[in-house]
């Protein structure tokens, strides 16, 4: 399952960060999105826009494409 499969308000654990873009992956790591972390989907923008997730009480906005390369369970 990937992050974008979650519905609004659902929580899951990050299994793998399969983000291709190296800089983006670094940024996500530094924001606390990493393996073993609980993430919660807070909102999704319409027309395939970004999703808003929460990790450690920190809200982050990222694009659907990148969110879909974050594997969760």
């Amino acid at each position: 399952m990937v992050l974008t499969d979650l519905h609004k308000g659902e929580t899951a654990v990050v299994v793998r960060l399969a983000v291709e873009h190296e800089a983006l992956k670094q940024r996500l790591l530094h924001l606390g999105v990493k393996e073993g972390k609980m993430v919660r989907v807070k909102a999704a923008m319409p027309f395939g826009g970004p999703v808003m997730v929460e990790v450690d009480g920190q809200a982050i906005g990222l694009r659907r494409k990148e969110a879909s390369s974050i594997e969760v369970k």
Binding site: H21, Q58, I60, G61, R63, E66
Partner: peptide, 9 residues
């Protein structure tokens, strides 16, 4: 050229 977006709220 690729575009990326990640932002702290």
């Amino acid at each position: 050229e690729s575009s990326l977006f990640v932002i702290e709220l």
